[in-house]
Simulated assay, not measured.
Amino acid sequence: MKKERSRMAYSIFIIIVISLGIASRYFSVYLARWIAKYAGDVLWGLMVFLWVGFSLKDRSTRFVGRIALIFSFFIEITQLYHAPWIDSIRKTFIGGLVLGFGFLWSDLICYTVGIGIGVLVEKIFYMDTKKV
């Protein structure tokens, strides 16, 4: 039997992951170079997975993972588009965190890893058997 996602737990996880992501940028000089370079993007992918899971709490892990991956890839692809209005949003703190600044293939890999971590952990702890 599938356990239902707890919105309270997911809210806490989202806050923790966002905090870790910001910390990975802020304390990057203290981290190994590859961790400093990729941790934020992996955590961003995990945060998107958690946000989608929070929003669609009755859907399967597989479905949540797919939506999170599509959303993450869409955001990354939009970074190829540079118009004054969207670049002005990107210049804000939140806009920069959500929309990013420039397209990188490595970001797609990082998002996939972060979402994969979310899927794996949720499959283990929530025993997802739903096939939606």
Rank of each mutant, 00 (worst) to 15 (best):
M1W: 05
M1P: 08
E4C: 02
E4W: 03
R5D: 03
S6P: 03
M8T: 05
M8A: 14
A9T: 04
Y10R: 06
Y10C: 05
I12Q: 10
I14K: 04
I14F: 06
I14W: 00
I14M: 13
I15H: 09
I15R: 09
V17D: 03
I18D: 05
S19H: 07
S19C: 15
L20F: 09
G21D: 00
G21P: 07
G21W: 01
A23R: 00
A23T: 00
S24P: 00
R25Q: 05
R33N: 09
W34A: 09
K37W: 00
K37M: 00
Y38T: 01
Y38S: 08
Y38Q: 06
Y38V: 00
D41R: 06
W44L: 11
W44N: 13
G45M: 04
L46Y: 03
M47P: 01
V48Q: 10
V48T: 08
V48M: 14
W51R: 07
F54C: 05
F54G: 03
S55G: 13
R59E: 12
T61L: 02
T61C: 13
T61A: 12
R62E: 08
F63M: 15
V64S: 04
I67A: 14
I67T: 12
A68G: 10
A68D: 08
L69E: 07
I70E: 04
F71E: 08
S72E: 02
F73I: 10
I75S: 03
E76K: 04
E76I: 02
I77L: 13
I77E: 04
T78Y: 00
T78L: 09
L80N: 10
Y81F: 13
H82V: 03
A83I: 10
A83E: 10
P84W: 08
D87W: 05
S88D: 12
S88N: 13
S88F: 10
I89D: 07
R90M: 04
K91V: 01
T92C: 11
T92K: 01
T92N: 11
F93A: 12
I94L: 15
G95T: 11
G95D: 06
G95N: 07
G96N: 11
L97I: 01
L99C: 14
F101L: 12
Y111F: 09
Y111C: 09
Y111L: 12
Y111S: 11
V113H: 04
V113M: 13
G114D: 11
G114K: 11
G116I: 03
G116Y: 01
G118I: 00
V119T: 13
V119S: 14
V121Y: 07
E122K: 06
K123D: 12
K123C: 10
K123T: 03
M127R: 06
T129M: 03
K131P: 02
V132G: 13
